[in-house]
């Protein structure tokens, strides 16, 4: 039992080390040769929505979910913060800075830091600390708190990116009723199901983590996407091999 734990730990460490090496190498290569991604309609529409935000002087709302940074859902929260930073840069030419709502306190603080940094980089001196908000500590209170900005603060695009549950349907539904564009993604399967039914565009599965690469956030994002593909094929091979070995009675 202990031996298996050690073996599993070593395998996991090897995977992490391999991934890190690949990412580092590919990021250097990608810096010279930017990759081309398959078309995702959700990101195409997000680009248009961001352009419309800048054009008509409306506001972008990014909801980061409730993924705590010390939880497994923290990865989706970090992905949301990454896309928040990129979108804040893109909309810095607009009249109004984006709003970030979150259901985790630490995530709210990080969203404030992200928006402040984006504002400083774009030369905006009047950064509003209330742009990064904690709207609730329970899923439905968070969703209820994220709804008023969509309705009251001239939001024309809502991006849900992070860890959400089924309560995300309330947010996307209000976005639809307010005739605002909604792009939703979550690492939660139940949330993905309701998002598929309620949001205008949905990212399924690991597409959430590809958002940074599609938003041109840098070579590391592109290389991390390539690493994901490599690891996915590796996982497929391992599963198929394990199934064959199991069927053969070896395992």
């Amino acid at each position: 039992m202990i031996g298996n734990e050690i073996i599993l730990g070593l395998v996991a460490f090897g995977v992490v080390f391999l991934s890190a090496g690949l990412m580092l190498a590919l990021s250097i290569l990608r810096a010279k040769n930017p990759p081309s991604f398959r078309s995702l309609p959700a990101f195409d529409r997000l680009r248009r929505a961001v352009g419309r935000v800048v054009e008509d002087g409306s506001r972008l709302h990014v909801s980061l979910g409730r993924g705590g940074l010390v939880t497994p859902q923290g990865a989706s929260a970090l992905a949301g913060l990454s896309i928040l930073r990129r979108l804040a840069d893109l909309t810095s030419a607009g009249d109004k800075p984006p709003i970030a709502t979150s259901g985790d306190a630490a995530l709210a603080l990080l969203s404030q830091a992200t928006l402040q940094e984006a504002a400083e980089n774009s030369g905006q001196l009047d950064y509003d600390p209330s742009a990064g908000r904690l709207t609730g500590l329970t899923p439905f209170s968070y969703a209820a708190g994220a709804i008023p900005p969509i309705r009251d603060e001239n939001v024309s695009a809502t991006v849900l990116m992070g860890n959400f549950g089924i309560e995300a349907a309330l947010i996307t539904d209000v976005a639809n009723r307010s005739n605002t564009f909604s792009l939703a993604s979550s690492d939660n399967l139940a949330a993905q199901a309701v998002m598929y039914a309620t949001a205008q565009e949905t990212l399924i599965g690991e597409e959430l983590f590809a958002a940074g690469a599609y938003a041109d956030s840098g070579p590391f994002h592109a290389s991390s996407l390539t690493v994901q593909d490599i690891l996915r094929w590796l996982a497929i091979a391992v599963m198929l091999g394990g199934a064959l070995l199991k069927a053969a009675g070896i395992l």
């Binding site: 995977v15 992490v16 991934s19 890190a20 990412m23 580092l24 990021s27 497994p72 990865a75 989706s76 970090l78 992905a79 913060l81 990454s82 690492d187 599965g205 690991e206 959430l208 983590f209 590809a210 940074g212 840098g218 590391f220 994002h221 991390s224 996407l225 690493v227 994901q228 690891l231 996915r232 996982a235």
Partner: peptide
Amino acid sequence: VALGALATGLRVLFGAD
């Protein structure tokens, strides 16, 4: 999702994010 989380974590470790 786990693979994406791994990649995201590595980006943070590398300081990319």
